[in-house]
């Protein structure tokens, strides 16, 4: 057991304790905040696979977050007015079922990641950042000009989608659902980091020549990582849309990409719990400082600056020390 494992265990405990306390004292608002943390952390877990493991500084993950959101919005909006999405060549109807929506969100954001990845992973460094940003912004302006789903105003979904066996409108039930999904994603990403694929991917981040010389093509590794990363962030987008029962082009904007990246950097790039800590800290600051000043993000900026300058491993890195090679 390393120090980081203990810290992660303590964080898990805290993440469960807070909503439990909120639930037992009847503070539904806190429950919703915790749900938001879990969903945003999930988006960060997705980005962390590309950024942390693969070293791919994607400034366009809002694209996948937004696609997930719009997958939910489109399916649910058609379902709520009983208007099929397409009648020809086959009948495609909307749905209010979360598992189906999640699947559609993940598949469509994975496909988008495949396309964007194939085009952008031929570049690196600043060019990669700019191309991913450009794709995100392209989708942003596309949705602004797409009146069928609310255009610039976005689109409201009146009733939260359903999950078999749960009443998702009860905050604590939706919270548990989000926690379970986040837990599964964390488990998956921990397994991934230690797998053959993870070893080769992290090696490609450190030294692409090395990986090529042992007969592994870095491009394929990065593309697969980008697709997995996009799919998880897409799932987070669908859940975030469900949390708010609202979608809008903002989900696609570069602010969103930046926020997801901030979660990862604040918590610790490449650290399993980095995005969780980052998202929690972000929401906490927004909640505490947002009440003090509308310009609370100034403080966020200062914090981010401090982390980047003095605590390169993010919060987890500062607490746990250098990453211990798992062997």
């Amino acid at each position: 057991m390393t120090r980081e494992t203990y810290i992660n265990a303590a964080l898990t405990f805290l993440l469960v304790l807070v909503p439990f306390w909120a639930w037992s004292t009847g503070q539904a608002y806190i429950l919703t905040l915790c749900t938001k943390v879990a969903i945003l952390a999930l988006a960060g877990v997705g980005l962390n696979i590309a950024l942390g493991l693969g070293g791919l500084v994607s400034f366009g993950h809002a694209a996948f977050f937004g696609i997930g959101g719009y997958a939910m919005g489109i399916l649910a909006s058609h379902a709520q007015v009983f208007d099929p999405i397409a009648e020809w060549p086959i009948l495609i109807e909307g749905t209010k079922s979360m598992p189906v929506i999640w699947l559609v969100a993940m598949v469509s954001s994975a496909l988008a990641a495949l396309l964007i990845g194939v085009l952008s992973l031929r570049t690196s460094g600043v060019y990669f950042i700019m191309i991913t940003l450009a794709f995100g912004q392209m989708l942003y302006y596309f949705t602004i000009g797409w009146p069928a789903y609310g255009g610039e105003d976005g689109l409201s979904i009146y009733v939260r989608n359903s999950f078999p066996g749960l009443n998702t409108l009860v905050p604590v039930q939706f919270l548990i659902l989000s926690y379970v999904v986040l837990g599964l994603a964390l488990w998956f990403s921990a397994r991934l980091a230690r797998s053959s694929f993870g070893l080769a991917l992290t090696a490609a981040r450190q030294n692409a020549d090395r990986v090529e010389t042992v007969g592994i093509a870095p491009f394929r590794l990065r593309l697969v990582a980008f697709v997995i990363s996009g799919a998880i962030t897409g799932l987070a987008g669908a859940m975030f849309a469900d949390l708010n029962r609202f979608i809008s082009p903002t989900m696609f904007s570069w602010h969103t990409s930046g926020e997801i990246m901030i979660f990862v950097i604040l918590g610790g790039v490449g650290r399993l719990y980095g995005p969780v800590v980052g998202a929690a800290l972000y929401i906490l600051l927004e909640h505490l400082l947002g009440g003090v000043s509308d310009y609370w993000q100034i403080f966020l900026g200062l914090l981010l600056l401090a982390v980047v300058l003095f605590a390169r491993g993010g919060l987890i890195g500062t607490l746990a020390g250098r990453e211990v090679a798992h062997g």
Binding site: L192, S196, L199, I216, H326
Partner: peptide, 17 residues
């Protein structure tokens, strides 16, 4: 990593390498 490259089955996502 070298041994993995030699074996060529890098696309495995679950088993701890």
């Amino acid at each position: 990593l070298g041994a993995l490259g030699a074996r060529g089955d890098v696309m495995r996502f679950f088993r701890p390498v």
